[in-house]
């Protein structure tokens, strides 16, 4: 890590958007697992995910970016066809 001499003064963050480098995957207890056979591609999980961790692919299918998913389970609750299951991380 950077020393006090190397860090910008006044605790300024001088690289915009650098939170992308901050891996929060270890916060997660439950991981959302998407069953692509049940998914109707309605996009509700993509809308509701507070972290933007649901990724919409070019073919309009969806997947989870596990680097940013904190395992809150909102996607599971928003899915009308129950295509998302929350599974405990240590079971995986």
């Amino acid at each position: 890590m950077k020393s006090w001499k190397e860090l910008p003064i006044g605790a300024m963050i001088i690289e915009p958007g650098n939170s992308i480098e901050y891996n929060v995957a270890q916060w997660r207890v439950f991981r959302p697992v998407l069953d692509k056979n049940k998914c109707t591609k309605c996009g509700l999980c993509w809308i509701f995910c507070p972290e933007g961790a649901i990724v919409r692919n070019e073919d309009e299918s969806y997947e989870v970016n596990l680097s940013f998913c904190k395992g809150c389970g909102i996607c599971q609750r928003s899915c009308n066809v129950k295509a998302i299951t929350m599974i405990k991380e240590e079971g995986l």
Partner: peptide, 26 residues
């Protein structure tokens, strides 16, 4: 001028234990 839109700096941040000490030493 650190609050210029040209710079896109973040000012007034959280200083977690990994950073606070260094910032205070400055």
């Amino acid at each position: 001028n650190r609050l210029s839109p040209k710079l896109a700096y973040t000012i007034g941040v959280v200083g977690p234990p990994e950073y606070y000490y260094e910032m205070r030493y400055q």
